[in-house]
Amino acid sequence: MNSGIRFDGVSVAYGGTTVLDHLDLTVEPGEVMALLGPSGSGKTTALRAVAGFVRPASGRVFIGGQDVTALPPYKRGIGMVVQQYALFPHLRVDANVAFGLKAQKAPKAEIPARVAEALEMTGMAAYARRYPRELSGGQQQRVAIARALAIRPRVLLLDEPLSALDARLRSGMLAELARLHRELPDVSILYVTHDQVEALTLADRIAVMDKARLQDCGTPQDLYRRPRTEFTASFVGNANLLPVTVAADGVLFEGAELKVPAADATPGSTATLCVRPHLVGLGDGPNALRGRVTEVQWRGSTHRLYVEVGGHRVKADVRELRETPALGTEVTLHFAPQDAVLLGAGVADG
């Protein structure tokens, strides 16, 4: 069963305002693709275009190689889970899970077994005869997922499914979704979130959205370790973004010459240097930066130091700090050349 999704130049507009601008993106069969971005970035609109709840102004949507742009939602073979669960309060759990099967006119004799299978898969078999009001938020979300899985969809759409849960439940549900993905290797999952931890934890690839456009796409490791844009660097993880000038053997930052991985860039051009805070050390070392401590935050396993270097704030996450530097203290930070990424450098001719 081919379950991939393909956006072919999909644009969506409301009242003359473009909310999704020429999206070209492919979700491979069996892949979890996270659409990550701030509110208003176009990620939920993209998901709704797959579901059939919005009609593109231009472009086409394909599921399993079939053009579904003009198909109604119930003919697309999708399961969908939204933030607020959308369970029917007057129906017991088993009836909620059976709802989609009945809507699809599944054979009556098959429905009980399909419901039992979905509830077992989500760990909710023991709650089949309860009403939604008798369940916790996490349990209600499991029922919503079971209802989506009962129809055996080729595509599963998840729209901010964990945002209504507290941190402990969210962590547990992430583990459950990862398990479900392993048990359903043929189902493509499109997962909309503004939470970078959810995207990094669950997705095979992340599509970074901003201002109605696709900004970047890659594996979580690639986007985190080697982001291609400042927006990706700042939205996927935490980053120091330092304005630098390209030099013959590195870059210049506030008078300091820093060694970074070689780039085909024109000396004298401007660029941005990206360094993750956890890769910045305290004390002498390569690529030393002198500055003044302006803030210290204790974060359990680390201290987050904010250090002003030539008018720029540099963040360093330091482990096992025996003595916390006082505010105003002059300190030296350092980072390894291979831990830096040069963004937006001017490319040399020839």
Rank of each mutant, 00 (worst) to 15 (best):
N2Y: 09
R6V: 12
V10G: 02
V12Q: 01
V12S: 02
A13S: 15
Y14K: 06
L20I: 01
T26A: 11
E28Y: 12
G37A: 07
G37T: 06
P38G: 06
S41C: 05
S41E: 00
A46T: 08
V50W: 03
R55Y: 00
P56G: 07
G59H: 01
R60H: 07
R60C: 02
Q66W: 13
D67F: 09
V68Q: 01
A70T: 06
P73K: 02
Y74R: 09
K75E: 10
I78L: 14
I78N: 03
G79W: 04
M80I: 15
Q83R: 01
F88N: 11
R92S: 07
A95Y: 10
V97H: 03
K102A: 10
A106T: 10
A106V: 12
A109D: 04
I111L: 00
Y131R: 10
L135W: 06
Q139M: 08
V143T: 04
I145F: 09
A150D: 02
I151V: 04
R154W: 09
L156Y: 03
L157Y: 06
L157S: 07
P161Q: 11
L162E: 02
L165Y: 12
D166V: 04
L169Y: 11
S171R: 15
M173V: 14
A178G: 10
V187K: 09
I189R: 12
L190K: 05
D195M: 04
L200F: 09
L200G: 12
T201K: 11
D204R: 10
A207Y: 10
M209Q: 00
K211H: 13
K211A: 12
L214C: 12
T219A: 06
T219P: 05
Y224M: 04
R225T: 15
R228Q: 14
E230H: 04
E230T: 11
F231L: 08
T232Q: 03
T232F: 00
A233T: 11
A233G: 13
S234M: 12
F235E: 12
A239R: 08
T245Q: 09
V246A: 00
A247Q: 15
A248K: 02
D249V: 13
L252K: 08
E254N: 13
E257R: 11
K259T: 15
A263D: 02
A265H: 05
G268R: 02
A271L: 00
T272Y: 11
L273A: 07
R276S: 04
P277H: 07
V280N: 11
G285T: 09
P286M: 08
N287C: 07
N287T: 01
L289N: 02
Q297R: 15
Q297C: 15
W298L: 12
R299A: 14
L305Y: 05
L305G: 01
D317T: 07
R322F: 13
L327Y: 02
E330K: 01
A336C: 08
P337A: 03
P337H: 00
D339I: 10
A340Q: 08
A345M: 06
G346M: 07
